[in-house]
Amino acid sequence: MPKNRAVLIDQIIKQTMRICAFSSLFFLFLIFLFILIEGLPLFYRVGVGNIIAGFKWAPTKGAFGIFPMIVSSFLVTIGALILGAPLGLACAVYLAEYAGKKKKLFLKPALELLAGIPSVVYGFLGVIYIVPLIRTYCGGSGFSLLAAAIVLGVMILPTVISISYDALMSVPRTYREGSLAMGATKWQTTYRVVIPAASSGILASFILGMGRAIGETMAVIMVAGNALRIPGSILDPLRTLTSNIALELAYASGDHRLGLFSTGVVLLIIIMILNYLANFVIRQKVIK
């Protein structure tokens, strides 16, 4: 019966696809499970406060304070946002509102390529060019919050640009026409109607850019200097949560290893909050 066979094949394909789709959920679940299994016991033993609010990280001596790293991660992220968000938004506005078809045709793929460059290459360029520049013109060793923020500022551009661009493009054409027909200029229309109308998507792009910056490891290790303290100025070195795990996991054992997993738990929670915030901001708009 060819007809039945066709139905059967259809069913098999459908079920296979379903398994594939749900496997990603399964992997996510596994990642959570293992990080929590490995990371949570130490929170019990040492105390949440001593880890999250502790200033001293000496895992072989029983001190697991990661507060300076949490602060450093946020400082680096905010620095990246200060540099990357305005640039990314300006780029998205240009692409969505001003660029002609031809310019879009080469700008869009170029930006996608920016997202595809491995982070170690960003770090490499940071070490070779940005760190010496900072050392020469600003002082210090050059390995600093500033260097990490600059490198990350560039690295979050693709995220900020592509999501802001989508938000700007989803603003109905009728809003633009309505504004232009009132005698507003192109720029007035853009910054008084189009950007406010796309504001939730733009905000989401910033939040997801933050998520990208806080999770970045390699490039930050290479340029941030990795010192274990809260930086006093933008020229001081610092160590982020991700750097801490990557730098020490190779030789960590016992409680030290568990301490790194605890770092991972904190990181995971921060990323989850950021993702939730981004989704929340986007959904808010849809409900309206």
């Binding site: 809003y175 026409e177 309505g178 009132m182 005698g183 007035q188 008084r192 406010p196 109308a197």
Partner: peptide, 26 residues
């Protein structure tokens, strides 16, 4: 020469802000 469109297209702002939009731009 003002224009009114086929589909009502108030901006996603308050009623008041819609009305003062043209005043602000000019």
């Amino acid at each position: 020469v003002g224009m009114v469109f086929q589909r009502p297209n108030p901006f996603p702002f308050s009623i008041y802000d819609n009305l003062v939009y043209g005043l602000q731009t000019h």
